[in-house]
Design a protein around this nucleic acid. Structure first.
Length: 553
RNA sequence: GGUCCAAUGGAGAAGCGGCUUAACUCAGUGCCCUCUCAAGGCACCAUUCACGGGUUCGAAUCCCGUUUGGAUCACCA
């Protein structure tokens, strides 16, 4: 008769440590009352997902607000889906949002006393715990092949039973240790399954920081805890790691609620205190069929954080937007605080909505315009350079030509109480301000279009008059009066009311004159304040552009 | 199908039994300002809280049912 202990020894002869040893090695953290230890645990399977940013933001915030610890753990147990280098990239991107861990996996290094923080390097820790489970008959090796598993599933589907490896379907659960030993010695591949003592007819109470208390059916599945490649599954790794890393609050996506019974059961059988849980609502989007669905990296550009980075949205804008989803009272708070110092805001789980919010691009744009609009010209310069250097070489070279000129362009109607807010993202800066640069202007001016209601002669007259008689050597008010005089001289009304009162008497109003100038100078129907545009372009360049347009008409 | 979660306007939401003829923000619309646009200012935008029943003097708020939506049921996390 092979005993449980002998079987455990046969499977893990190299494991000498015990759970007690681990408890000593990773002692309770010495933190002040109320300090929360949170973690962000991404898989290195691709770029940072917007939902992951959301989760990490909350984790970071909760730790910071409570004077606790925020750490990152790399969950790289799925070797098939792993993408080389994505772990480092995740950390880099997090950093761009000012989310920097106190401890744990840092990209190219690890820091802290509770490591290693990369799951693939923790194999021995999991094995210590599994050996204990094996010794106590709480886990067993399972030799089921993929075909056998498929067959079980098929049968369950036919009989409309809950799918899974449980009860009578868990056939290798009933093997004797002698049979197990024989198969192992024969070199048969196997996984280790947890031997569940649960009954799905029983209800277990669970508690969640955002959902409150509720009941859920007890787990009766003999889940895999160690895969045939010797690495643990998520469920098991979560329990071991969050126990030994002394996490106080597990913050993760709502999709994990369904597996909570597994985790609760695992903690209970190991005699460990489970952490507090907070299951965050998932960020959604309206799908092709008109229904809500989870933001998906495959279908939605806004699911990848890199999209916002590449387009040049300021990182603060995304964070602010995400905070409004996290806590609805944040919005009022940030308005009061003039869109600054959001670190001061106190986050609370109780003020979190339970329903997944639809990702709102419009609201993001709003925050983005606010933030970009409130920067001074130096901040804008630095920001643009940093962004363009990495993502937009064309813009970068444009800015590099003359940084002062760029700052003056960006400074039009900025640095005042109500600054211009027409920059939504740095990514389309070139399109908006391109006309300030002569070579870009030349390109654009090849297909310049004026308002059809004016003849070419009218347009030529306006431009020639402005060229010869509009002085830039005066303040804005006088400049505008000057323009009115020119308008009047050419048969245009000096204001719109006059035109309205007597439409037959005028060719148009001063607005139309301004429009003609604007189009000639910028190739567009709208632009920032013309006075400042002309000041920046300087008289000589304005005249050059006027002449060029006149000659083409 | 089983299990769990959720349900207030176009979007995010406040609301916790009477103070609600449902706050606030974004979007939209209109007007004002104005050389255009952006900004700014002022209005408008749910007679009603998915539906049905109940409890109560009184319900968006409590209870029950229905419906709808979401999550999940892997050797993926």
């Amino acid at each position: 008769m092979v005993t449980n202990k002998e079987l455990a020894e046969l499977i893990f002869p190299e494991i000498k440590e015990t759970i007690e040893d681990l408890e000593k090695k990773y002692p309770e953290r010495n933190l002040k009352e109320g300090a929360e230890v949170t973690r962000f645990a991404p898989s290195p399977t691709g770029f940072l997902h917007t939902g992951s940013l959301f989760t990490s933001l909350i984790c970071h915030k909760v730790a910071r607000d409570s004077g606790g610890v925020f750490y990152v753990r790399l969950e790289d147990t799925d070797t098939k889906r792993e993408i080389q280098g994505s772990g480092e990239q995740l950390l880099e991107q997090l950093k761009l949002f000012n989310i920097v861990p106190d401890e744990g996996y840092l990209g190219n290094s690890q820091k802290g006393n509770y490591g290693p923080y990369i799951q693939s390097q923790r194999a021995d820790i999991y094995k210590v715990v599994i050996k204990y489970l094996l010794e106590n008959g709480l886990a067993y090796p399972d030799f089921a092949s993929q075909e056998e598993l498929d067959e079980i599933r098929k049968k369950q589907e036919e009989q409309k039973l809950t799918p899974g490896y449980y009860g009578e379907f868990a056939k290798y659960r009933f093997l004797t240790n002698d049979e197990r030993k024989e198969r192992i010695l024969n070199g048969e591949p196997y996984v280790i399954r947890f031997k569940s003592s649960g009954n799905h007819l029983n209800k277990v109470p669970v508690s969640d920081l955002v959902h409150g208390d509720f009941e859920i059916a007890e787990n009766d599945l003999d889940i895999v805890i160690l895969k045939s490649d010797g690495l643990p599954t998520y469920h098991f790794a979560h329990v071991c790691d969050d126990h030994f890393m002394r996490t106080t609050t597990v913050i993760r996506g709502e999709e994990w609620i369904a597996s909570l019974p597994i985790h609760v059961q695992l903690f209970a059988t190991l005699g460990w205190k489970a952490p507090k849980y907070a299951h965050l609502p998932v960020i959604m989007k309206i799908g092709e069929n008109g229904n809500k669905r989870k933001l998906s990296k495959r279908h939605d550009k806004e699911a990848a954080v890199s999209f916002f980075l590449e387009d040049g949205y300021p990182s603060e804008a995304l964070i602010m937007y995400l905070m409004t989803i996290a806590n609805s009272n944040f919005e009022e708070w940030i308005f009061e605080h003039k869109f600054t110092g959001m670190e001061e805001f106190k986050f609370s789980f109780s003020k979190m909505s339970l329903e997944g919010a639809l990702f709102d691009m419009g609201k993001l744009s709003f925050f983005s315009k606010e933030i970009l609009g409130r920067m001074n010209k130096h901040e804008i310069l630095e920001r643009t350079k940093k962004y363009a250097k990495e993502f937009n070489p064309e813009l970068y070279s444009l800015v590099e030509r003359d940084e002062n000129y760029f700052m003056e362009i960006m400074n039009i109607e900025r640095e005042k109480e109500n600054p211009r807010k027409d920059y939504e993202k740095l990514g389309n800066l070139k399109e908006i301000i391109g006309f300030f640069y002569n070579d870009i202007y030349e390109e654009l001016s090849s297909n310049i279009v004026f308002n059809e209601k004016f003849s070419n002669q009218d347009i030529k007259d306006v431009l020639a008059q402005v060229r010869d008689n509009l002085s830039l050597e005066q303040d804005e008010q006088n400049w505008f009066n000057n323009m009115k005089e020119i308008a009047s001289f050419l048969g245009f009304a000096t204001d719109r009311k006059a035109l309205k009162a007597n439409p037959e008497a005028f060719k148009g109003s001063v607005s139309d004159v301004a429009e003609i100038i604007r189009i000639a100078l910028t190739t567009r129907k709208n632009s920032p304040n013309l006075y400042y545009v002309m000041q920046l372009l300087k008289k000589s360049e304005c005249d050059r552009r006027f002449n060029s347009v006149i000659s083409k008409l």
